[in-house]
Design a protein around this nucleic acid. Structure first.
Length: 278
DNA sequence: GGAAGATGACAAG
DNA sequence: TTGTCCTCTTCCC
């Protein structure tokens, strides 16, 4: 589920659902019980996201920092909260709806200063109006690390995950193994504005769709195909399947423990092909 | 019923 | 680079 757009959506939804309400806060599973007790009965002021981090703000400058990690979920449901199903770390219950958090990497009470620290250590987030892509470029443009690694580094760009990484590199025909410093500034600018547009669309729709109209399976005479994650993509999790553009089998390789997907034919720069990295 | 895998991040070596 | 954590779903027997 969780790349930046998911967290941004969640922040919007939590704000719309609970802002300015006094809420019941609990931790049915128990691991957030002490902090939940402090928040119980107090008022939510709003929620925001920064990269993949979610901040739920309560009165008296109390902030709950949530990171969903690989499989955490924060579900909002209408109606009265019944018996919790599964391991619910945090439950927020308002007048007409409740939200259950399960399996997060982080769920902890923060003070405002910790939010400042977070903002300082994260790279620009394409979903935030205050983002400065040049901050990312200063890291990318001088790095020997593969661009695929840099895009996943939250200190370089915040909010990009495995899907957006694979897809944006495909859309710009960039070899994932190309060292950042071989990227041109105008290529980075194009990638950045594409990320801004794709992720804003992701916030709107709740899915990651990256296939351009002319490459839609319909246009190519194939049946539409939607990945398990719910969007239509060029390469993500399509290893072995034919590339939507050139028909070559999509490749997969483990990079730092994560699967990287790309088309070895479309994403090739003959002029400056980099050495494959192990 | 059990294993594997999943859009993540961190520490240790 | 590997191990660890967190939870749920899907697949296979």
């Amino acid at each position: 589920m969780p790349e930046g757009h998911t967290l941004h959506r969640l922040a919007n939804a939590l704000t719309a659902t609970f802002a300015d309400q006094a809420v019941r806060v609990g931790s049915p599973q128990g691991r957030f019980a002490e902090s939940a007790a402090l928040l119980d009965g107090t008022r939510v002021t709003g929620a925001e996201s920064y990269g993949k981090h979610l901040l739920v703000e309560f009165e008296a400058e109390r902030i709950v920092h949530v990171h969903l990690g690989l499989y955490g979920k924060f579900d909002i449901a209408l109606g009265a909260a019944g018996d919790p199903r599964g391991a619910v770390r945090l439950r927020i219950a308002g007048r007409a709806a409740y939200a259950d958090l399960r399996g997060p990497t982080a769920c902890e009470m923060w003070a405002p200063a910790q939010v400042d620290d977070l903002a300082a250590r994260l790279g620009p987030d394409p979903l935030r109006a205050d983002a400065d892509p040049e901050r990312a470029w200063r890291r990318i443009g001088r790095s020997r690390a593969p661009i695929a690694t840099l895009l996943m580094d939250q200190a370089v760009v915040a909010g990009i995950g495995n899907v957006y990484r694979a897809e944006v590199l495909f859309r710009h025909r960039i070899d994932p193994n190309m060292p950042g410093r071989l990227l041109r500034h105008r290529e980075w600018s194009a990638i950045w504005s594409d990320l801004c547009a794709l992720m804003a669309e992701g916030v709107r729709t709740g899915r990651i769709d990256t296939v351009r109209p002319e490459h839609e399976p319909d246009a190519m005479g194939r049946a539409p195909r939607v990945d398990d994650h719910g969007g239509e993509v060029y390469v993500y999790r399509r290893a072995g399947d034919p590339c939507h553009v050139c028909g070559t089998r999509v490749r997969r390789e483990a990079h730092a423990g994560r699967n990287l997907f790309w088309c070895g034919r479309c994403q090739r720069r003959t002029r400056r092909t980099s050495q494959p990295r192990r």
